[in-house]
């Protein structure tokens, strides 16, 4: 998938740079994303802003409106405002939740504007022109597969889940399917809400509750930070490693440097928002075929390939 994306973009960018020759009127692309309430979202915000800054230079005829929302209803308001007052030609949206956003996004689509949906699908199919999707069950599956490799004889693990959402459910299902029959047993699972403090607390309690924990699926690098601190504080050496996810740069660096506690990572790149914005810009300004669904798969990062996934400037 990554390859497809790169080639496509290459072609599109070539087309894009040729565009200013046409004296086109300025078009507005609205970008509506959740606010930076946790690390991954922070990274996503960073990449969105960065993509916009970059594309505004590349395409003088494009204007971008970025709105970050702290809850679904604010996001609905943002989108309604964009449609009503900014006369957007395209909307890039990472829906906070699928159901509440479906109606408003459909209204945008009905107005004739281009709609790109990122990461979280809408409740109704066929609204969007372009769907740039993360692969949540793939994320869980890759994590599970690594777990079975790392614990070939099976073992007892605990898992931390994110905020209760479809995303989290899909990841956990993918993970559970992947470890089925491997002899690995999830002895406990609680929500750490993609939050360092919450996961610290949950992990402390897991450590009190269970005398033997072979590994931890923290499922997210923010949660992995909390988990690691709790293990360190408890001085327990039964935990062999912690598998996080999403590719926070500090964690990637530790994997790269061979930290035995962080032997691997699974990507769920927040940069997918940048991809979506770029593809949308291309779609608006050229005739390149960018509609359809682009799934950005989750990739296993180990010491061997960690360098490729380390982004110095990203806050995440």
């Amino acid at each position: 998938m990554k390859h497809l994306r790169t080639t496509l973009l290459g072609a599109a960018l070539a087309a894009g740079t040729a565009l200013p020759a046409f004296a086109q009127e300025t078009q507005v692309i609205g970008v509506s994303i959740p606010a930076a309430t946790h690390g991954w979202a922070g990274g996503m915000n960073f990449h969105a802003q960065e993509a916009i800054d970059r594309l505004e230079e590349v395409y003088p005829d494009l204007d971008f409106v970025l709105a970050t929302a702290s809850d679904p209803s604010k996001q609905v308001n943002d989108i309604e405002d964009m449609l009503a007052t900014r006369n957007i030609s395209a909307l890039v949206v990472l829906p906070f939740e699928s159901e509440p956003l479906t109606g408003p996004v459909k209204a945008v689509s009905d107005s004739g504007a281009w709609v790109t949906v990122v990461d979280r699908g809408l409740a109704q199919e066929g609204i969007e022109d372009l769907y740039v999707a993360g692969d949540n069950s793939g994320f869980g599956r890759v994590s599970g597969e690594y777990m079975t490799e790392a614990l070939p004889d099976g073992g007892q693990i605990v898992a931390l889940r994110g905020i209760p959402t479809t995303i989290d459910n899909e990841r956990v299902e993918g993970f559970e399917q992947a470890i089925e029959g491997s002899g690995i047993e999830i002895i406990d699972m609680e929500h750490g809400n993609w939050n360092r403090d919450d996961s610290f607390t949950v992990m402390q309690d897991f450590l009190s509750k269970h005398d033997q924990i072979d590994a931890v699926w923290a499922s997210d690098d923010d949660m992995a930070v909390g988990v690691l601190a709790a293990i360190e504080a408890a001085g327990r050496d039964d935990v062999q490693f912690v598998l996080g996810g999403a590719g926070m740069k500090e964690m990637i660096a530790r994997t790269r440097d061979g930290d035995p506690m962080i032997p691997a990572n699974v990507t769920y790149p927040p940069a997918m928002i940048a991809t979506a914005i770029e593809l949308t810009a291309v779609g608006l300004t050229s005739s390149a075929p960018v509609s359809g669904t682009f799934t950005i798969g989750s990739v296993l990062v180990t010491q061997d390939n960690a360098e490729d996934y380390y982004f110095e400037d990203s806050p995440f």
């Binding site: 606010a35 690390g39 979202a41 922070g42 990203s314 806050p315 995440f316």
Partner: peptide
């Protein structure tokens, strides 16, 4: 959020 540039 601003000090942390959206991150940590």
């Amino acid at each position: 959020t601003w000090l942390a540039d959206g991150g940590t």
